[in-house]
Every structure is written in C-alpha cells, then in structure tokens.
Design a protein around this nucleic acid. Sequence first.
DNA 1: ACCTGAACACCGTTCAAGT
DNA 2: ACCTGAACACCGTTCAAGT
Lengths: 251, 251
Amino acid sequence: MTKPFTSVWAREPRRPRSSGLGREQIVAAAVEMLDAEGLESLSMRKLGARLGAGATSLYWYVANKDELLELAMDEVWGLVEVPDPDRATWREVTTSTAYGLRVVLLEHPWLANLLGRMPMAGPHAFAMSDRLRRAFVRAGFTGLDVYLASGTLMGFVLGQVIPEIGIRQVSKDGRYDPATLVDVVERVAADYPEMRADFRQTVEMDPEAARAMAFDFALLCLLDGLAARLVAAGVAESSGQPADNGVPERR
Amino acid sequence: MTKPFTSVWAREPRRPRSSGLGREQIVAAAVEMLDAEGLESLSMRKLGARLGAGATSLYWYVANKDELLELAMDEVWGLVEVPDPDRATWREVTTSTAYGLRVVLLEHPWLANLLGRMPMAGPHAFAMSDRLRRAFVRAGFTGLDVYLASGTLMGFVLGQVIPEIGIRQVSKDGRYDPATLVDVVERVAADYPEMRADFRQTVEMDPEAARAMAFDFALLCLLDGLAARLVAAGVAESSGQPADNGVPERR
DNA sequence: ACCTGAACACCGTTCAAGT
DNA sequence: ACCTGAACACCGTTCAAGT
C-alpha cells in the first residue's frame, strides 16, 4: 500500500504536447536504436542525444530505463500478426502465428533478452494473446485449456528462437566468427561422436534452412500434441470454416 | 583467419596454481554471486573484492566478462540431471529431464537472461544434450530426428520457464509487488473479458501450482507430439525396459 | 607468472536550477 | 509544465608498473 502503482501500464502517459519530445517518439526512437545497435548499447544518454535533447529530459516521460524497455517491448508485440481466427482453421492460425512470432523475434533480438527480465504485460501483448485465445476457443478448447494452449504455443516459439538468437548474437558481436564457432563445437563435441556427426550434417546445410527445419519439426510435434488434447477431450477435429481441409497431413 | 580462436572453450585455462585465485574459484564465486544478487549486479569489481583480489586480477584468467558468464553458465548446465536412458522409458527420461531443467533454471534465473546472448557451447551443455540424445535414440528416433527431438525438448522447457522467470524477476526486484501486478493485468486486460476471467482463475490458485499446471499441460502436448512423430516413422511405442507401462495415461 | 592501481571512456539516476 | 547541467556512484577494460 505504500507505493500503490509502479507500473508503466498503470500511469497515464505525460501529455504528448507541443515540442519534439513525447512518450511516443521516445519509444519509437528507442526501438530503432535497439534494432540497429542491440540492447547492450542503448543508453539514455545516446537516446537523448538522438532526440536532440539532454539525456535526463527523458525522465520526464518515463520513470526509468526499465520502463522504457517495457514500452519498447510492447511496441514490438504489436507487430506480430495473428490471422483472424474466424477465417482459418486453428492449425492455420497457430502455424502462421508461430512463424510470424519467430520472424518478429529474429528481427528484434533484444526482445529475447528482455523476456527473462520483465513480464509481457502491455496492451499489444494482451491483444496478441487474445487473438490466439480465440483461435483455440474455435478449435474446441474449453475453460482453462484455452489459456494453457495459448501459453504453450507462445512458450514454444520463444524456446525455439531464443537459442537461435544467442548463436546469431555472438557472431554479430564479432565475438565468434562462424568458422570459429564450428571449430569450437567440433572441439567440445569431440567426446560425443554421434552429436558431432549430427552437427556436421547441419553445418553442411544452409544454416537458415537448418533452423527452419528444426522449427518445423518442433511445431509439428506441438500441434499434434495439442490435437491429442482435443481428442482426449472428445472434440471432433476439423472445426475450420473453409471446407477445403485446413488440417495439413502429417509428414 | 585474423584471430583464429576467441572462445573460452578453445583456450587452455591458465594454470590453477598456488594462490587463492584460479579459474575454478572465480567461476564458482561468480555463480554464487549471480544466484544471490542476479545478473545485473554482478560486476568484475565486486567479484574481485569478494575473492580478496583487485578487480583487474581476474583478467589474467578470463578474457572478459562475457567469457566469465559463459563459464558460469556451463557450470550450471552441469547441475541438470538427465536419468540414465538405459534404465527408463523415453517418456520417463524426457519428463524428468524437463522437470529437472525447469528447476535449475528457476534456481539460477540469470541463465535465462544469458541464453539469448550467447550459445550453449560448453562441455556440460554438450554432456547434457548427449544424454538426452541417447534417450531419443532408444525411443526409436533415427538420423537427424534425434537431434531435432532433443532440440525440441530443450527449447520447450526454455520457452515455458523464461516468461515465468520474467514475472518473478520483476517482483523480486521490488519493481512490482504481486498485488500491483494483479492490478496492472486487471487494468490492461479490461478489454478482454475472457482473458481476464482466465487470469482470475489462475490468480486464485497457488501461483506455484498454476505454473506447474501450465508446464504439465505443455509437456503432455509435446510428448504426445513426439510420440506422433514415432508413429509416423513406423516405430512401435513402448520401447522401455521396465515392463510396467512407462507411458502415462493421457489425462 | 601473477597481481596491482591509475586511468579512460563510459553508465543510470537525482536534483536544484532554469524557462 | 518541461528541460537542463552538474554531480554521484557506479561500470568494463587497458596498460604500464610492480613482485
């Protein structure tokens, strides 16, 4: 009860008045800088400079850096497209949401670094979750299962993409170049011949294709698993609108 | 070819000689501090002080802070217990690995913040992956599917746990207290009545139990999905040793 | 071979002071 | 109401110098 509200989402933004500064432009500029330079190199000072303002001016619009990051994060959740659940089967909606979310995360890798540090509690995040929810409701999930199913899908994508980002990050920073990374893995994996064999197979592939393959495999698992939940609950599959078979064949 | 090796894993550690300092004690102390105070508040200066050394002495054993974090991370992967794949069904092995990994991540939340920043390329990480691999081989997966299946399981756990950590973090930092968090969500979710209803249901539960339920639901999906992959590949299920039915009933 | 201190170029945030 | 600059208490890392 001492400090009743300490969240960005609970406070009216300061008026987007006259001058160049305002919450919206600050957040927009922050997102741009984060995309361009990464989480590590965003500083209040640089951001201020970029907006032609003193570093400390930002504190009029935002309580601290973490709040700014929360706002930036939610901004990006707004970019994830979730198809209208009324115009596609649930498998289509979930599949395309998963791919869309993956792309957004890869384009804004700093998101991944923030997720373990603050919750997704902004309006865009909620809008996204709600659209996903509706897809699962139409699929036939009921009660808490709707909530559980959408959490499962969100988590799934995060878990697939975050390690991928970790790898990319390290080569973008120039810490490892790709050749070194291969070399390192070869060396550390020396004790595990089968792992090394698998690793070599994937190295020969286009790395993009290799990651996409892994994502597809995992997504297929998840969707089949979700479908199994429906069957267990006694719901007939194929609740989709478009008659032309929305359920992709399995393998 | 300019800088042939820039990875911790590619360089011999400096000799763990005489004095108190040495790579091992540095890493151990770092893990302790990370567990106690979190990623944000670990500094080379504080770590040095704790070891009774000048901050800059650490640079004899470690190229930079990121390398130290890489070492700390791998140290913790060593704590994940993966049961012997020869003594349990694959469902048992994967289930208990998933739970074990979840516990380790929750106990060392800074891990989650690091995963999107550097790859899991240390020896302990590889040892863990290899044990997981063997479980999937015994289950009947072949070729690249072994690699894909274990990546799927690892990713799954990360994705489930990372958002959970984000929420905990924010209340541990004293940024939101739990009551505020509920309030914030109520406010932002005001436009989505069904979501709010679900949210209320979970708030009434013990939060620990709510998260565990979500994890169980998602894990069940994943395992059913993996099993579906096996069926699609024409492998008979139940490859387990112990005859007494390793496959848990569905729901 | 190992450790140090001073120094450099940064941080986020507070706050009195300005307009 | 909005913005500023100086100031505080920090960072990681380099490097010449010590033992």
